[in-house]
């Protein structure tokens, strides 16, 4: 027990810096995932077939390729093709665009979950199709989608460890733990604290999502 606390006390700055790197990776990737995912989700329910096709292609491409392969393509592949992007861009873009495919699917299902009667009622008042979307359908869809988005956020926090373990070698929480483990050979202790760090992030995410859900919930 004292060994465990001792590792944390001695290497707290390293753990903390790893924790914040992971936090930044997650925050940037989340912004990408939500914005791209919303756009792609909107394409998936667009009235034009060509737009739906673009959305579907995106989802199938990014959902069906392993995240690690995306990282290799974006970091090594693009570099070989003459587009040199750094590990931060490659990592956050890969994780963000990968998660965006799932976000798009969640948003699509949220739009479909809003009853057709809502569209009828809105149109019958004289609202245009566009206003019906922005005033009636999307606000309800966004609320339905909060719990599945929470799940995606948690998955994304955990997936972010792949970035630290990959060739990108960003000094995130897992990477810092591996460096410490190699230096100190206190394997169980260092990885215990890494796990605890991830737990702090995922549990906070759960807490925030629950509050959001309660505040915005629609009682039916």
């Amino acid at each position: 027990m004292s060994a465990l606390l001792d590792v944390l006390r001695r290497h707290f700055p390293e753990f903390l810096s790893g924790f914040f790197v992971t936090f930044r990776v997650v925050a940037i990737s989340l912004a990408i995932a939500i914005s791209v995912g919303t756009l792609v989700g909107a394409l998936r329910v667009a009235p034009l077939r060509a737009l739906r096709w673009i959305g579907t292609t995106y989802v199938e491409a990014f959902r069906n390729v392993p995240l690690l392969v995306l990282i290799f393509i974006s970091f090594l592949g693009l570099r070989r093709a003459g587009v040199g992007i750094g590990p931060w861009v490659a990592g956050t873009a890969s994780l963000g665009l990968y998660t965006a495919a799932y976000v798009a699917e969640a948003i699509r299902s949220g739009v479909f979950a809003v009853g057709k009667g809502q569209i009828d009622a809105s149109l019958s008042l004289g609202l245009t199709y566009r206003r019906t979307m922005t005033k009636i359908i999307l606000p309800q869809a966004a609320r339905t989608v909060i719990p599945p988005l929470g799940n995606l956020l948690i998955a994304m926090i955990k997936n972010s460890a792949i970035i630290g373990a990959s060739i990108l070698a960003l000094p995130d929480l897992l990477k810092q733990a591996r460096i410490l483990q190699a230096r100190t050979f206190q394997t169980n202790e260092t990885f215990f604290w890494a796990a605890a760090g991830y737990l702090v992030l995922t549990l906070s995410a759960t807490f925030v999502v629950r509050r959001l859900e309660r505040r915005l919930a629609i009682r039916r």
């Binding site: 009853g115 009667g117 809502q118 009828d120 019958s124 309800q140 629609i218 039916r220």
Partner: peptide, 13 residues
């Protein structure tokens, strides 16, 4: 024209 539906269709939000 006003329309009233069987299932009310009030906006729940």
């Amino acid at each position: 024209m006003g329309m009233v539906f069987q299932s009310f269709n009030l906006f729940p939000h």
